[in-house]
């Protein structure tokens, strides 16, 4: 609470301090964009980013190749997905290499963590943070600029990749995507950016929290590993213990399935893969357990994009909430901290 009133107080004094100095009190956002520009340029020039870009581009090329080489098979199948064959570029795989969207959900965290893990602590250890904080810029500009720069870099990268995949598909297949497919791909790209920005925020938080960049990077990777490897294991263990018998009432089975579904919803990776599979496969009509009653009378068929989006709205909200939570935590520990040189 003290923190919030502190921020509020600063806000208030910025807005209406002394009537005669009001003009001078206004905080301009120009320095903010100067900082964003510098940070984004730093990213683009860094070896780290070039290496990551290389990894991402190579894996995406690989998955694109496998999906394209299997395309004729996919086209032959006569099902609802056939209407959206362009989306297969992102989801199809022959089993040797994962598909595009699986790659993105795997590499996204790595990208986010590596862009943010040394955001604040390296400035501190290089002695530049106290120098920047002695300039007339609000403290949160530093955090926001770091985040914004990462976001811009990731956005450019992902949009370029998605559009390159579309372009390659266009050239190889000779069939343009429909407006709906294009819309779905664009929404998918925006959501991948949100997913990466979650990891970016998490690693910025660790960079505020830990003084050593290596510790912050390790903490980020630990969280990632925990959620991709260990958390599902733990959930499995727990669920094994309370699994209802074959003769349990339908209600017990239903509740068990519900719990099973709810437990994995904490994982950011799971949220993201639900979002992407729903968006990229219009035939996905529900996530989580359904009763036979609910399925009764449904006609299998693709969902319109609005409905797909509505279906994953809770997951999307959850992902954004997690992102905001990390951001709030970084604020909390950064805004009122003492800034010493080195």
């Amino acid at each position: 609470m003290k923190f919030i009133t502190g921020i509020f107080r600063e806000e208030m004094t910025m807005n209406n301090a002394h009537p005669n100095t009001r003009g001078k009190d206004r905080i301009s956002t120009r320095p903010f964009w100067v900082m964003v520009q510098k940070e984004a340029a730093d990213h683009a020039r860094s070896w780290r980013f070039i290496i990551l870009l290389g990894i991402v581009v190579l894996t995406c090329l690989g998955s694109l190749y496998t999906s394209l080489s299997n395309f004729t098979e996919a086209l032959g199948k006569n099902d609802a997905e056939n209407d959206f064959f362009f989306l297969n570029l992102f989801t199809l795989s022959d089993g040797t290499l994962p598909s595009f969207f699986v790659f993105v959900s795997f590499l996204g965290p790595l990208l986010g963590i590596s862009l943010g893990f040394d955001a604040i602590n390296s400035e501190q250890s290089k002695g530049t943070l106290s120098r920047i904080m002695a300039q007339p810029v609000p403290r949160d500009y530093v955090l926001n600029a770091k985040f914004m720069a990462g976001l811009i870099v990731v956005s450019i990268m992902f949009f370029t990749l998605s559009f390159l995949v579309i372009g390659t598909g266009l050239i190889v297949l000779g069939i343009p995507p429909t407006a709906e497919e294009f819309l779905r791909i664009t929404i998918y790209t925006v959501l991948s950016i949100i997913y990466v920005s979650f990891w970016l925020n998490l690693s910025i938080f660790f960079s505020v929290r830990f003084r050593q960049p290596a510790t912050a990077a390790l903490a980020g990777i630990a969280v990632w590993l925990f959620f991709t490897v260990f958390y599902p294991l733990i959930v499995n263990l727990v669920l094994k213990g309370i699994e209802p018998s074959d003769f349990a009432s339908p209600r017990a089975v239903y509740l068990y399935q519900k719990l099973k579904f709810a437990l994995v919803q904490v994982m950011p990776g799971e949220l993201f893969s639900e979002i992407t599979s729903t968006l990229l496969m219009p035939s996905v009509r529900s996530i989580g357990p359904l009763t036979m009653e609910q399925l009764h009378g449904t006609i299998p068929g693709p969902l319109p994009p609005g409905q797909s989006l509505l279906l994953v709205w809770p997951q999307l909200t959850g992902l954004i909430a997690l992102t905001l939570l990390c951001f709030a935590l970084s604020y909390l520990s950064f805004m009122r901290r003492e800034i010493r040189s080195r």
Partner: peptide
């Protein structure tokens, strides 16, 4: 404490062992 930005506009501060962006 209350108006750090206005103060920083008028005051230059050279921290002990100052650092610069090395690249």
């Amino acid at each position: 404490v209350r108006r750090p930005i206005q103060v920083k506009r008028k005051v230059g501060y050279l921290p002990e062992d100052v650092g610069f962006y090395e690249d």
